[in-house]
Design a protein around this nucleic acid. Structure first.
Lengths: 196, 196
DNA sequence: CCTACCGATCGGTAGG
DNA sequence: CCTACCGATCGGTAGG
């Protein structure tokens, strides 16, 4: 996942973005102050502006890193030579692991994108809409091929995507099952919910 | 659903709370201004304080009306003489219809509760934790009675609750299936995901 | 990366 | 329910 995953070669700006994602996730974008972010980094608020243009730039950097990665993955999965149900399963596994490993960024992207400024807001919404339509398309193919039961595809997409974002509760829980167990449980429930 | 459902006999305060829920849902609690809320109501910001104590009071009135209703429903369902799977289905149908019909309040309760002030915040979190545990309890009973397949109950709860909150996307969508179709589709996917 | 500071906006109060 | 106004805090800039 590029910059998200590697811990080396992080520029100062990368570290700021990372800490911003943690802060935005915890308190929400609007409730997060630049002075607070600066404090986490051990500098004065004014110093942040030597690395970034604005608070809002931080938000769009976070949102688009996630959105672009997710678009790339759906590109890849669409062209695989496997059944539609398998495609849905692969996508789900990617989404689940994305939420497990990079939940701050993904959570911010999911919940705080509405504070994006134009033209980023419109771009983001368009990308999101297209992303959901492509997933619905895979499900519809699965229905035609009788791999998936006859359901409303957009509703299935809504369930899948929101269920995955619920992994945030897993992170917060005291007695955690392992990440692998979480993945398998979610796949078991969601995939058998779609099967014929 | 008490005050939420009836359109008559609304006090001025009830109207303020209703409009606050719409505003908080649309823009988020922190990004919603009291001047903005006043404008929707056609009054000056200062006049709001003749009916309410603070912005934060609005939030906790919204959150606890939902939370109390939901606790009452789980009370009721727990004591019914039906199978565990049927209990889960009834609960799901209630949650789905709650989100369809009162989505502003439910959405605010779901997403903005973290801005509650003490002692409301702690109370709310405790109520929420207990609520989830009770649902997990029903699922575990279902597993023991072999009505539900062997899965991690808290994970199933997480999927159900978050899937339901995704109904917000349905509200926003252009070409909506009917509310009844949405309900049946969600039940079909989620309940067959739990069955043996 | 810091000190010093700005204009705007916030929730809320006094007093009528 | 209004006018007038408050202290606090916000994102961000100037200048070094």
């Amino acid at each position: 996942m590029g910059k998200i995953v590697t811990k080396k070669n992080l520029t100062r700006k990368d570290v700021i973005i990372e800490k911003a994602a943690e802060l935005f996730k915890e308190k929400g974008y609007k409730a997060s102050g630049m002075r607070e972010l600066a404090e986490v980094l051990g500098i004065e608020a004014a110093s942040l502006y030597n690395h970034i243009k604005s608070k809002s730039e931080l938000l769009h950097l976070i949102c688009f890193e996630v959105a672009n990665k997710y678009t790339a993955v759906i590109d890849e999965i669409e062209h695989k030579d496997i059944s539609s149900l398998k495609k849905v399963e692969e996508l789900l596994r990617f989404l689940i692991n994305g939420m497990i490993n990079h939940y701050q960024q993904v959570y911010v992207c999911d919940r705080e994108w509405k504070y994006l400024e134009e033209p980023y807001l419109s771009n983001f919404q368009a990308q999101r809409r297209s992303y959901r339509k492509r997933i619905a398309g895979i499900i519809e193919q699965g229905i035609q091929k009788k791999e998936i039961k006859s359901i409303d595809a957009p509703t299935a997409v809504l369930i899948m995507l929101h269920a995955v974002s619920g992994i945030e509760s897993w992170h917060r829980s005291k007695q955690k099952i392992t990440a692998k167990e979480l993945e398998e449980n979610m796949i078991s429930i969601l995939i058998s919910g779609l099967k014929k």
